[in-house]
Design a protein around this nucleic acid. Structure first.
Length: 591
DNA sequence: GCCGTTTTCGGCCCGACTGTTTTCAGTCG
């Protein structure tokens, strides 16, 4: 079983223990271990094969009992404990627990007293008002659960960062425009730049305490709000027209930093920080840092970290994936920042399927403060994207040469996004590739090859001396298309061995690579090219807006980013690969 | 169930909102 599957079973065990009324700490323990497993960058199967039982218990939160369960899952593909729990509880209870608003108590009551076994049963019971007849249940709960059923049926779609970020920015703008608002920030997974976002968490500091009511009222009556889920004194939850929920909290300025930290999460990161606080005799919550009843910090986020004797940890790292330990040792990496980006090595133009001319793209790039832009239009066989024939490619090069003659302080680079053909060879002959400054090798066809074949194909391309980097390495489209099967460990190793970079494609519905492989690449010393893959001028901003954040989640520093190099150093690096192509050609008959 | 430069047993992170209640349980983040 994969890590994700094992994490899923452990999470299910926690939910079922909750129904059983097990002690809170046992449940927390399963929840924690489930998160640990889900976040591992190495397969448990590999750890167990290499280090056995001890390798498992060495992982945080995993003791004897959990290790035994994991071993059973790895070797037999099942978990007796989970099966026993399922057998001991009413059938269908897990389906009920998936409904928002339905917790362990309500689910158990519905399952035992009303014999509800499924979503459909639950819906019927509610419509017959049987649920409201149970103790402590009423009409409002029925209403909430009916909405919850609808949400489960339409799929709990998380929105991509690309949809959520502009929405949050617009809401923040309207909040900041209110006279009673002194500060408004987004928190939550959005601030951590997670690639998908479940809801928006917004925080506001009022100028005066009395302003809170008006701010809340303005928020719940925003034109994008289609429903109010909760509306209290300090918190409101609403459903937005765009299909996302947003929470607003009004926070007194003296606690704003504490609240920002608390609501930014992640949950496991917060737990770790609060635990550190407890050891130092402090209580940390969303209202501040407290020693006894006295608040000793909380206005700024830095005060939270200072209280637990850590340096400031950037939001993108707050996943409890080693950032606390690194911070404690003073080994937090300096992360790449949008300001470090000097250019873009993956953009398209009207020569292939782009919607802007080379000149228009260059103007937009200069406005971003870039020094260079590599035009990587599609290669000849990708007909759907109007891939360039060799003569067209050379005509394009003449346009670039002419442009470069006139440009000062900016360089247009000749590039191509060259298809990796199914056999691993490239879609232009070597003598054409030799004319290019930047070769992005990408898979656009035959996504269905099995993992071994796809990996072999990509590794073959990385071995080619003229390739600069691998484009969108997994091919995933968030919420639309899964990554194609590929062994990224092998790909990263090949990139390392052949001195090639990997792309972090900054299209917000790709963000390909994700943080796990980025960290592995970083550890291997593999350079990352953060490419916008822009097909129009506006999309150039994908790199600073989404790509930099995604790279930061992968602990990537400016020194590992190819397009953070100044032009002269970039050219030197690109040029270094050139002489090797002669040897490659000699060794490649048919090229 | 996990864990330990105070502990191998006794702790384990914290609070808001809602609904159905006359003081609080349940759910969520």
């Amino acid at each position: 079983m994969s890590n994700a599957e094992i994490a899923h079973v452990l999470e299910k065990i926690a939910r079922l223990l909750e129904v059983q009324g097990a002690i809170r700490f046992k449940i927390q323990s399963y929840d924690r271990v489930s998160r640990v497993v889900a976040d591992l960058d190495r397969p448990l199967a590999e750890i167990f094969a290499a280090e056995g039982h001890k390798g498992l218990t060495a992982l945080p939160g995993i003791g004897e009992s959990t290790a035994a369960k994991i071993e059973e899952m790895l070797t037999k593909g099942r978990c007796t404990k989970y099966e026993e729990l399922q057998a001991a509880l009413p059938p269908g209870i897990e389906e009920l627990l998936a409904v928002p608003g339905m917790g362990p108590k309500t689910a158990l009551l519905a399952a035992t007293r009303l014999k509800v076994r499924s979503l459909d049963d639950l819906e019927r019971a509610i419509q017959a008002h049987k649920l409201a007849a149970l103790p402590r249940m009423g009409a409002k709960l029925e209403e909430k659960l009916l909405k919850g059923i609808a949400i489960v049926r339409q799929g709990l779609a998380r929105k991509s960062l690309g949809e959520a970020l502009p929405l949050a920015d617009a809401l923040l703008d309207s909040l900041r425009a209110l006279p009673g608002v002194s500060r408004a920030e987004a928190a939550g997974s959005l601030r951590r730049m997670r690639e998908t976002v479940g809801d928006l968490d917004l925080l506001v500091a009022p100028r005066r305490p009395a302003d809170a009511t008006a701010i809340m009222r303005a928020f719940v009556s925003h034109p994008d709000v289609t429903g109010i889920i909760a509306h209290g004194d300090t918190k409101a939850s609403v459903r937005l027209r765009q299909g996302l929920d947003a929470d607003l909290r009004v926070i007194e300025p003296a606690a704003f930093g504490a609240a920002l930290h608390y609501f930014t999460g992640s949950k496991s990161h917060n737990i770790r920080v609060r635990e550190l606080g407890v050891k130092l005799g402090l209580k940390i919550n969303e209202y501040g840092v407290f020693r006894g009843a006295k608040r000793v910090g909380g206005r700024e986020e830095t005060e939270i970290f200072r209280a637990v004797r850590l340096p400031f940890i950037p939001p993108e790292l707050r996943e409890d994936e080693g950032e606390i330990e690194a911070a404690a040792k003073g080994r937090l990496p300096r992360l790449v920042d949008a300001r470090d980006i000097r250019g873009d090595l993956h953009v398209h133009s009207t020569w292939s399927d782009g919607r802007a001319s080379i000149e228009a793209m260059v103007a937009a790039a200069r406005a971003l403060g870039y020094e260079y832009l590599a035009f990587c239009d599609h290669s000849q066989s990708l007909k759907v994207a109007r891939g360039l024939s060799v003569p067209d490619l050379r005509r394009k090069h003449r346009e670039i040469d002419a442009l470069n003659r006139d440009l000062r302080g900016f360089r247009v680079l000749k590039g191509a996004e060259v298809d990796i053909l199914p056999d691993g060879s490239l879609d232009y002959p070597d003598e054409v590739l030799d004319e290019l400054d930047v070769v992005v090798a990408s898979v656009h066809t035959r996504f269905t090859l099995d993992e071994a074949a796809q990996t072999k194909r990509v590794v073959a391309a990385l071995r080619h001396p003229r390739v600069t980097f691998l484009g969108h390495p997994t091919g995933r489209m968030l919420g639309m298309r899964d990554a194609h099967p590929i062994n990224l460990h092998d790909v990263i190793a090949a990139a390392r061995d052949h001195g090639k970079a990997l792309e972090l494609n900054a299209q917000p519905d790709r963000l390909d690579l994700s943080s796990g492989p980025l960290r592995e690449a970083r550890a291997a010393g593999v350079m990352i090219a953060i490419g916008s893959d822009a097909h129009d001028t506006a999309s150039l901003s994908f790199v600073p807006r989404f790509g930099a954040g995604a790279a930061r989640r992968g602990w990537v520093g400016p020194g590992q980013v190819l397009n953070a190099l100044p032009l002269a150093k970039l050219l030197k690096r690109l040029g270094n690969a050139k002489p090797r192509s002669a040897r490659f050609r000699a060794a490649s008959p048919g090229a």
